[in-house]
Design a protein around this nucleic acid. Sequence first.
DNA 1: TATTAGCACTCTTTAGTATTGAGTGCTAAT
DNA 2: ATTAGCACTCAATACTAAAGAGTGCTAATA
Lengths: 344, 344
Amino acid sequence: MGIDGRKLKILQAIIHNYITNAEPVGSRTISKKYDLGVSPATIRNEMSDLEELGFLVQPHTSAGRVPSDRAYRLYVDSLVNKKRIKLVQKRQIKTSLVDGINELEELIQNSAKVLSKLTNYTSLAIAPQLIESRLKHIQLVPIDETKLLMVLVTNSGIVKNTVFNIEKEISNSQLNLISNFLTKKLKGHRIDELGIELKKNLTKEIFELRDVIKDVMPMINKSIDDLEEIDLYSDGVTNIFNFPEYNDITKAKSFLSFLENKENVIDMLLRNKNQDIEITIGKENCYEEIKNCSLITATYRFNGKTIGKVGVIGPTRMAYAKVIPVVKSIAVNLNDILEKHFEL
Amino acid sequence: MGIDGRKLKILQAIIHNYITNAEPVGSRTISKKYDLGVSPATIRNEMSDLEELGFLVQPHTSAGRVPSDRAYRLYVDSLVNKKRIKLVQKRQIKTSLVDGINELEELIQNSAKVLSKLTNYTSLAIAPQLIESRLKHIQLVPIDETKLLMVLVTNSGIVKNTVFNIEKEISNSQLNLISNFLTKKLKGHRIDELGIELKKNLTKEIFELRDVIKDVMPMINKSIDDLEEIDLYSDGVTNIFNFPEYNDITKAKSFLSFLENKENVIDMLLRNKNQDIEITIGKENCYEEIKNCSLITATYRFNGKTIGKVGVIGPTRMAYAKVIPVVKSIAVNLNDILEKHFEL
DNA sequence: TATTAGCACTCTTTAGTATTGAGTGCTAAT
DNA sequence: ATTAGCACTCAATACTAAAGAGTGCTAATA
């Protein structure tokens, strides 16, 4: 028993109906609302088949049927490359993303905001990771007698501060000298190789500077460790309450607690790195707390390299057809903006 | 009819019982559990009086009684200066606050974490506002041909970055010159007066620098505006689900939505600036969404000036006696840490 | 052979009713 | 002034009946 055209149409109708109404769908409803030209009885037979094939689930004998994760998967796969975004939304995204935004982190945070506004789901975004990007400028700034601020600027326009302690005060002019020296030597190198590079260069340098740099070096290494910390933004977290499947307080709590745990969320977002857009449905998710959720993520890139993710999370009964193009569009726009504004 | 010693004792017993059990308290319960040496009937009479006086409320005729906001107020006022913190907790706070913390913002964020961990309520903290602090160092760092990073370091050790656009490229050495010039001229001035100060000084300076500084000036002003944005941290947001009063999904949603609105939360925290510790009970709160919540906040200071707030929010039925000393202690420790580590 | 009308059957949902029990307020006795 | 006793109130709980949505099967139909 395969899944012929009619079965597919019925399945799609059921999915559509369930996504909009959140209630099990019966044969009569399909027959009346969707013009398939067959009687409820026929649809019933087909539905029975679809259940046997694993695409539908019955909450109980006398209820209608509900799409399974597998049904959503089929539905989504048939959808991914088709849907285009509404022109209005497209324009809206383009203008609202950069509206009043100057810094990269703000841009990402704002992306999350726009995403949740447009979709009415909870949105997530991780800020550019700079581990793969290259150093552009390094500057040491005095804070007080025992504290130094190191500012790193990367080629992707990301700025990172690290404060660290020093043993003896270093004069302003000396700091500038060191800054210039470090910038000259380390510019263009990958952030995660700065430590090695620094060691390599150090041996050849004049004593005067060498002494001071020796003090600073372990700090630079520590600072680089700090860089690996990933910033996570979310928005529209309370949107989850809009969905009847989360009227159950324990479910809502479980979902929100999961989101509160930054590490898990980041891990979830980074699990697959390669696809432009990825959709994880229900049990496909690795974390128990969100096995009744779907996740739609897109990657944004810079110079062809993945540097971050944006996405939307909500019940498996998600408005995929509406959300997918929005997420896609946000990512595309982010790529454009990064290209234009953050490297010339 | 006043509120004599016995009435007070009964009221306290009721409050205590209600705080721990979250259920209306009856006369029999008080008579049995609290050794007041009187019969339930007597207690009933007293309770009736206490209700008339506005300290108790009856959900319905055949239920026990529940403390009113006014009762909590009385209770809290009698409490504030008495309760001492447990030694264990005190030590715990002291060590855990600075554990692995280098930057000021981390410190505040961590304070929120410790606070929610110790109290099991939702904690809030606002990071030091630097509007009142004074400039220590200013440094311009190149990002690319059209972008400049301005780093401000204040006397309270706060670092603030602002990225802005420039029209024509400025050389590295020129940037250092400008940075030095700006630092020299503006050091020690209040952050919110930098703009005026800059204007004053500018007229007297040599032409060469003046030209470039003119370009930079509007940016500095803009950057200063940015400084006024207040960072808010929260932790243990989902703790609210631990309280039966938030089993109602609409109440939980209302609470969480309120917390999602950063501006309102900040406004709430900043409403009273002067007290060391402040407790706002139920309807005393200005925002509708939290009129059944209590808020306990403390101020932390630096050089005698209020620079931030930490606090806890939860149902009016809050474990005041437990929470107040913890909040207090966190603030005291913050003061100490700031004193020690961020200015010598 | 595929479709469909008809109908019995299942199981949740809703409404209605009775019962229970916690707690009060009043009265009369101490 | 205190308290035992008791009638009364009202939410919470349990139980029952009825309604309704939807299915699956059978037999009739095109």
